[in-house]
Write a protein that binds this DNA or RNA. Structure first.
Length: 467
RNA sequence: GGUCCCAUCGUCUAGUGGCCCAGGACGUGGCCCUCUCAAGGCUAAAACACGGGUUCGACUCCCGUUGGGACUACCA
């Protein structure tokens, strides 16, 4: 009988959901989905001074946007302080933890001194054997066994051995009675029946300490999997100075959640030569064993490429929905405008190969709507010479008489015109493009004509031709 | 300083002793396609950090060096 998989993402709400956290959440989510397990969200807010409700909400918003849904939680550790105190009490009674009356300032001073002497800045254990009674300002420290070593069995990195002598007697209860991370994480992981602890690499050094707590309670340790870090372009840990690091920033820049997920999953995980995955494929193929062991540099260029791929492969309906908020935000559409979503879908779809982000798409879409356009001077000089204007006049006549204002009807008509006049299609298309869009780059000109519609096209042509 | 981790093209990676004078992807250059811009196709340049072993044979195994990273709090 196998116990069902239970994993958790346990962010501390001291900031927005960032790229690294999102990937940790994603790997947990994928592992849960792959194994029909349960994904739990737990908020590690034991540091009350740095945690805010706003950040909790932001983290959940980020996860929701990425479509990482959870079955249980959010649990908040601040709601569980009584539980932790109970367990801490038990350790004290069993003499596996003890009161320490050293003051933080004293500790800091001794640390500096050790460092200056070239020694390890560890707690010197001066309260360890004092058997102090509960005093007013007293923290509780965990009694790490002296001697021997502790081995972390990691699913990604293999066995990692630590000498117990390098492990501090860490504080599990602060002098104000609140519990600390290394303690609550163990209590919660047991209490929530977590089977696999999948978290960032930066926690490996904490793991042997935590294993001692498991052992002090006589609990079995879960499986550990430590994910390699995500680095910035200078190979330092990804941070604000590397540019956007919050997930919502990517949403606001017009990235698709599936593109970000796809990018993030390939940072450290691979499946042969495959680059693009559907969620289903991801769930199907994901395994902790195929996660690499080395840190990965975040590459915005590749993310942008993936985003363009996802935009390119979206349906008109999906694009219309996705781009709408960006149109409103860019002021291309007033927020209360009634939008013809079918038309919008067509317009967005025509730009799918030219827009790397939704933001770009919204901006490019202006030319389908605006009847007041500024014509680029260079483009005008090159493509709107008198003879070109003459050609446009002929085009106008052709368009006037078109039986239907669609690309399929108009394209052959304009082609015939070019042939009749003995000029290349380009000599017609480019002037027309400049007249309608104000520039020299756009989707296929017949597509543009169709999307703009007869009224707008005629109005813009009249402006250039006159009359 | 101590402890731990990591090391293939600029970047993400494939590679689990012979299939590799190293494959894919992003980015970069060239060509093709073409009503423009894209997209797409083809193509080029680009890497096994270094030094020792082990082995008939190492990108792959071991050791060391170097380089990077993480942790070292009454933060998480």
């Amino acid at each position: 009988m196998t116990t069902s998989v239970r994993v958790r993402f346990a962010p501390s709400p001291t900031g927005y959901l960032h790229i690294g956290g999102a990937r940790t959440a994603l790997f947990n989510w994928l592992f849960a989905r792959r194994n029909n397990g349960v994904f739990i969200l737990r908020i590690e807010d034991t540091d009350r001074s740095r945690s805010t409700d706003e950040y909790i909400q932001a983290i959940m918003d980020g996860m929701t946007w990425l479509n990482l849904d959870w079955e249980e939680g959010p649990y908040r550790q601040t709601d569980r302080f009584d539980i932790y105190r109970g367990y801490a009490e038990r350790l004290i009674q069993e003499d596996k933890a003890y009161y320490c009356t050293c003051l933080p300032e004293e500790l800091e001073e001794r640390r500096q001194q050790s460092l200056a002497e070239g020694k390890s800045p560890m707690y010197d254990g001066r309260c360890r054997e004092l058997r102090l009674k509960p005093a007013e300002p007293a923290a509780v420290r965990f009694r790490v066994p002296r001697g021997g070593q502790t081995v972390v069995q990691d699913m990604i990195k293999g066995a990692i051995a630590f000498e117990n002598s390098v492990l501090d007697d860490m504080v599990i209860l602060r002098s104000d009675g609140t519990p600390t991370y290394n303690f609550v994480v163990v209590v919660d992981d047991i209490d929530m029946k977590i089977t696999h602890v999948i978290r960032g690499d930066d926690h490996v050094n904490n793991t042997p300490k935590q294993i001692h707590i498991y052992q002090a309670f006589g609990w079995d340790v879960p499986q550990f999997a430590h994910l390699p870090m995500i680095l910035g372009s200078d190979k330092a840990r990804l941070s604000k100075r590397h540019g956007a690091t919050s997930v919502t920033a990517y949403r606001d820049m017009g990235y698709l959640p599936d593109a970000l997920v796809n990018y993030l999953v390939r940072l450290g995980w691979s499946f042969g030569d495959q680059e693009i995955f559907t969620r289903q494929e991801l769930i199907q193929h994901f395994s902790l064993e195929s996660i690499g062991e080395s840190a990965a540099v975040f590459n915005p260029e590749k993310l942008l490429w993936l985003n363009s791929q996802y935009i390119m492969n979206s349906t008109p309906e999906a694009l219309a929905d996705a781009v709408l908020p960006f149109l409103e935000q860019a002021g291309v559409l007033a927020e209360d405008t009634q939008v013809d979503m079918q038309w919008l879908g067509k317009a967005a779809y025509s730009l799918r190969e030219r827009s790397k982000t939704l933001l770009e798409m919204a901006s490019q879409m202006k030319c389908y709507i605006a009847d007041e356009i500024a014509i680029d001077q260079k483009a005008r000089g090159k493509h709107l010479k008198p003879e070109s204007i003459q050609v446009l006049a002929d085009v106008r006549t052709v368009l006037e008489h078109a039986t239907e204002f669609s690309a399929t009807v108009i394209e052959p008509l304009v082609n015939e015109l070019a042939v009749a006049k003995g000029i290349k299609l380009g000599a017609v298309a480019q002037p027309l493009r400049v007249a309608l869009t104000g520039g020299t780059a756009s989707p296929g000109i017949f597509e543009v004509v169709e999307i703009m519609g007869k009224k707008l096209v005629m109005k813009l042509l009249a402006k250039v031709i006159g009359g």
